[in-house]
Simulated assay, not measured.
Amino acid sequence: MRVYLPCTLPALAKAVAAGELGPAPLIGYAVTPALTEWYASGDTEELEYVALTEAARASLRMLAADRADGVDAAPRRVVVAAEVPDGGLTVGVDLAERARVRLADSVPLSKVAAAHVDDLYAIPDIEAAIAALSAADDGDDDARFTVDGAEAHELMWYATQEIPDLFR
């Protein structure tokens, strides 16, 4: 099953050094039965895009958490697409996150299909979204608009052999 794993550039650099994404358990996003049922008119490609978008939202939250912990993380959302066996994950039932899955094991880099990363031109909007995230969670409509604005940026696709270039 194709799973989209939220990440950050520092976490991806650590994964490259370790040879795997982890430690387990990991939260990811995939085309789940709940997502398929909810988004009944979509084809597989559209459903995978929804899962990718959910993972990008989670990446934004990871960036905010890194910043709160003093980690100097570039304001670029990162989503890693990987192929994992169906038996290695548990599908969630949270209606707010219909695509959410839990992986029981770390993901070897050999299972990574690609990385999706914000382009440099998205940085100002991602930075603003990180700053507005807490207020958006508290119900501030203007902050929610700012956070939603991050989704206006498409993530760039990087082949597995291009991932090390992201750290130069």
Rank of each mutant, 00 (worst) to 15 (best):
residue 114 A to N: 05
residue 115 A to S: 11
residue 115 A to I: 05
residue 115 A to Q: 05
residue 116 H to D: 01
residue 117 V to Y: 10
residue 117 V to H: 06
residue 118 D to L: 09
residue 118 D to P: 00
residue 119 D to I: 07
residue 119 D to R: 15
residue 119 D to F: 04
residue 119 D to M: 11
residue 120 L to D: 13
residue 120 L to Q: 14
residue 120 L to G: 03
residue 121 Y to K: 13
residue 121 Y to L: 15
residue 122 A to N: 11
residue 122 A to R: 09
residue 122 A to E: 11
residue 123 I to C: 04
residue 123 I to S: 05
residue 123 I to V: 15
residue 123 I to F: 06
residue 123 I to H: 06
residue 124 P to V: 14
residue 124 P to F: 15
residue 124 P to A: 14
residue 124 P to H: 10
residue 125 D to P: 00
residue 125 D to C: 05
residue 126 I to Y: 08
residue 126 I to C: 04
residue 127 E to G: 10
residue 127 E to K: 08
residue 127 E to R: 14
residue 128 A to F: 01
residue 128 A to D: 00
residue 128 A to V: 01
residue 128 A to L: 02
residue 129 A to W: 02
residue 129 A to K: 02
residue 129 A to L: 10
residue 129 A to G: 08
residue 129 A to V: 10
residue 129 A to F: 07
residue 129 A to R: 03
residue 130 I to G: 02
residue 130 I to W: 00
residue 130 I to A: 06
residue 130 I to S: 01
residue 131 A to K: 08
residue 131 A to D: 12
residue 131 A to E: 13
residue 131 A to S: 09
residue 131 A to P: 04
residue 132 A to W: 00
residue 132 A to C: 06
residue 132 A to Q: 01
residue 132 A to L: 01
residue 133 L to S: 04
residue 133 L to H: 01
residue 133 L to F: 06
residue 133 L to G: 02
residue 133 L to A: 05
residue 133 L to R: 00
residue 134 S to L: 09
residue 134 S to E: 11
residue 134 S to N: 03
residue 134 S to P: 02
residue 135 A to K: 02
residue 135 A to F: 00
residue 135 A to I: 00
residue 135 A to N: 03
residue 135 A to C: 00
residue 135 A to D: 05
residue 136 A to G: 08
residue 136 A to V: 12
residue 136 A to Q: 07
residue 137 D to F: 10
residue 137 D to H: 14
residue 137 D to P: 02
residue 137 D to G: 15
residue 138 D to K: 12
residue 138 D to V: 07
residue 138 D to W: 07
residue 138 D to I: 10
residue 139 G to S: 08
residue 139 G to E: 06
residue 139 G to W: 09
residue 139 G to C: 09
residue 139 G to R: 05
residue 140 D to P: 03
residue 140 D to S: 09
residue 140 D to R: 06
residue 140 D to I: 13
residue 140 D to K: 06
residue 140 D to L: 11
residue 141 D to C: 09
residue 141 D to G: 05
residue 141 D to Y: 05
residue 141 D to P: 04
residue 142 D to S: 08
residue 142 D to V: 12
residue 142 D to G: 14
residue 143 A to D: 10
residue 143 A to V: 08
residue 143 A to Y: 07
residue 143 A to F: 12
residue 144 R to S: 13
residue 144 R to M: 13
residue 144 R to E: 14
residue 145 F to I: 08
residue 145 F to T: 10
residue 145 F to Q: 05
residue 145 F to Y: 10
residue 145 F to A: 12
residue 145 F to R: 12
residue 146 T to R: 01
residue 146 T to S: 04
residue 147 V to F: 03
residue 147 V to M: 03
residue 147 V to H: 01
residue 148 D to R: 15
residue 148 D to H: 09
residue 149 G to F: 06
residue 149 G to I: 12
residue 150 A to T: 05
residue 150 A to Y: 00
residue 151 E to Y: 09
residue 151 E to R: 11
residue 151 E to V: 08
residue 151 E to D: 11
residue 151 E to H: 08
residue 151 E to S: 12
residue 152 A to Q: 14
residue 152 A to C: 07
residue 152 A to R: 14
residue 152 A to W: 14
residue 153 H to A: 10
residue 153 H to S: 09
residue 153 H to E: 04
residue 154 E to H: 13
residue 154 E to W: 10
residue 154 E to I: 11
residue 154 E to R: 13
